[in-house]
Design a protein around this nucleic acid. Sequence first.
DNA 1: AATGAATGAGAGTTCATTCAT
DNA 2: GATGAATGAACTCTCATTCAT
Lengths: 212, 212, 212, 212
Amino acid sequence: MDAGEPKFRRRKADRPGEIVEAALEVFAEKGFAAARLDEIARRAGVSKGAVYLYFETKEDIFRAVVTRAISPNIAAVQAMAAAHPGPISELIGGVAKVVAEVIAGTLIGSVAKMVIAEAGNFPEIARVWHDELVAQALAAMSTAIEAAQARGEVRPGDPRTYAIQLVAPLLMTVLWRETFVPVGARPFDTAAVAAQHVETLLNGMLTQGARA
Amino acid sequence: MDAGEPKFRRRKADRPGEIVEAALEVFAEKGFAAARLDEIARRAGVSKGAVYLYFETKEDIFRAVVTRAISPNIAAVQAMAAAHPGPISELIGGVAKVVAEVIAGTLIGSVAKMVIAEAGNFPEIARVWHDELVAQALAAMSTAIEAAQARGEVRPGDPRTYAIQLVAPLLMTVLWRETFVPVGARPFDTAAVAAQHVETLLNGMLTQGARA
Amino acid sequence: MDAGEPKFRRRKADRPGEIVEAALEVFAEKGFAAARLDEIARRAGVSKGAVYLYFETKEDIFRAVVTRAISPNIAAVQAMAAAHPGPISELIGGVAKVVAEVIAGTLIGSVAKMVIAEAGNFPEIARVWHDELVAQALAAMSTAIEAAQARGEVRPGDPRTYAIQLVAPLLMTVLWRETFVPVGARPFDTAAVAAQHVETLLNGMLTQGARA
Amino acid sequence: MDAGEPKFRRRKADRPGEIVEAALEVFAEKGFAAARLDEIARRAGVSKGAVYLYFETKEDIFRAVVTRAISPNIAAVQAMAAAHPGPISELIGGVAKVVAEVIAGTLIGSVAKMVIAEAGNFPEIARVWHDELVAQALAAMSTAIEAAQARGEVRPGDPRTYAIQLVAPLLMTVLWRETFVPVGARPFDTAAVAAQHVETLLNGMLTQGARA
DNA sequence: AATGAATGAGAGTTCATTCAT
DNA sequence: GATGAATGAACTCTCATTCAT
């Protein structure tokens, strides 16, 4: 009997994935504590009891949400780390572009917001986020910048600070979108900010010789 | 008689102020929902009931915390708005310094974190924060930058974006401190970041003529 | 296996009904404000939380208790309204009998007590009780008495007052039972009071001609 | 200095009286449990603390309210008990008149409502009310009616029931006023009800010989 | 596997009562 | 006597978690 059956039945196999997806939405909107399991279950299209077939606790779901948001980006970071040894300007332009794309194309902004908000309550989540994502990216960039300084491309200065200088405005556009746009603020176009920022920053950090 | 622990102390002192102070601590650590009134009261040195002599609800306390963090900074923003019409480099250097000092010297970072985290649940708080603080500061800087562009000091580009580029790394150091330092990350020295950033940015955004 | 006490019983039975029943008991004993949800739940044989699966608030339960006490009596009132046009003495005797039976056989007395007690706090409940029950009954009786007066059966006088004269002593026996019997007062036998009262009242209100 | 002083300063001596008066109002409106000591104090024009100079607990105030409503009526009841041995019709007419006046002229109705409502929570209050007021009045009337029956004035029947028959409609008008008039019901005029009821009842209970 | 009715510990809030002033 | 800020026990209501079905 086909009657009454949903047209597209989602593969049973991905129940956990659907729950994590729904949970991401709810956690992003409400924060961890204010998120209701009822709502997560409802949005995932399952019963509240079913959630507990796949996750032990609410915290468990939260961890899964963050972990899942991390994984697909680890590759990008590793690629960055193993990046071409060409002129630093290419690397920086590339990094900014990738970061801008990730920001625009994924929900990583919401997750970052949650990590910031719940760092006090779930230190191990902040730690994972830092260790697997942020620190690695920062280290990769610092290393590249340091090498470029050694090659005389980049002016003196703390490489880690240069790295933060690069990504901060991009991250700021995400937080802006999450925080102020819903209450009427004019949004920032991440790509446009990235473009202007890369130009300004390169202009400011490269040595005379490196500016072709 | 001073000896002995009086059951009921009556401090003429600023009870609401003490409660708001304690609440700021707890909210910053736990977030709004996970903060316990018991704990706020305990840290304020009063009973749970006493809190309700001064505030109607938990939300009310939260609003007071944010409002109170805003007020002392409004002056700084207004001063910035009415700033000298001298060379933009001076203004930017000044702004960065003030921002760095505020960040280092006040708890505004914790509050900002709370505003980001709870924007979804308390839109009116995000709105106040934006309208009274963020938008004003941004507008003042944009205007100054625009004027500098008209004077030929600053290269072409979106003034509002330039403004964000300036402050973003500084704000990032706060979020870093709140989020990752407690789990072992190496902190950023806001003042040092400010110094390097101002130099890089000015170098990047000023026209040839403006660079003395 | 029937043996053993299952932690979660699922009675298909009328949970809301059981809760309302338990609530009626507790409200009648303690009054609305002094009634404890714990106790209502306990007497209904459910947990405190379960009560909130079926009712939004304590007030909601209270309304359900009163509403539920009203409904089965509406029929009786309507029957009264559509009563036979025979001699008024029959009607009055019949009404007194029905009222006496309802009083003796149901918990309506307790509910009436609650309505009286909480009229100030829950006006809409007093209104419902009045509009759907009391006013209707009174109107039906007044109309019948008026018709009897037109037929020369009943002596002059305000029909609504005659109606109150008729039922007041019966209602008084309920309040007596609720109020004074528990502290040792001798109870009134509602049926006996009804019998004597009907005889006295008919004797007093009928015209000479109507007394066979 | 007279300036700032209230024109009529109430005698200090009657603070308790003023509190009881205020409490009567509040209890009558809200019931015992829902009445707030804040409100009682406010209406009495004293501080909350002052209330505790005169009364130990809220229950204590409640008892005082009821007791105070009883006392002035005890005299009336005793007068009734010691009544003239004249024809019963005079007595009954007199009693009805007095009761109607008390009902109309005092707040005894509100108190009666409270006694009914709180009988379950404060049995000793119900007991006092019964023993000192209700039972005495009932006994006095029963005795008089019994004597009248012995004299052949009143038809056979239970004297206590006759007594209830007499006062019930009058009491009903009070409860009606307290309960249904505030939600829009048409009030009963107690005096008018008394007049019609006395006539009807006497007509119904007197023997042929006693009807002049 | 899946449900959802049921649980019960724990939260925010209220308010009779106390006591330093 | 009088005040009113302060207390803390007790309440209603919520919601993550469980388990009979």
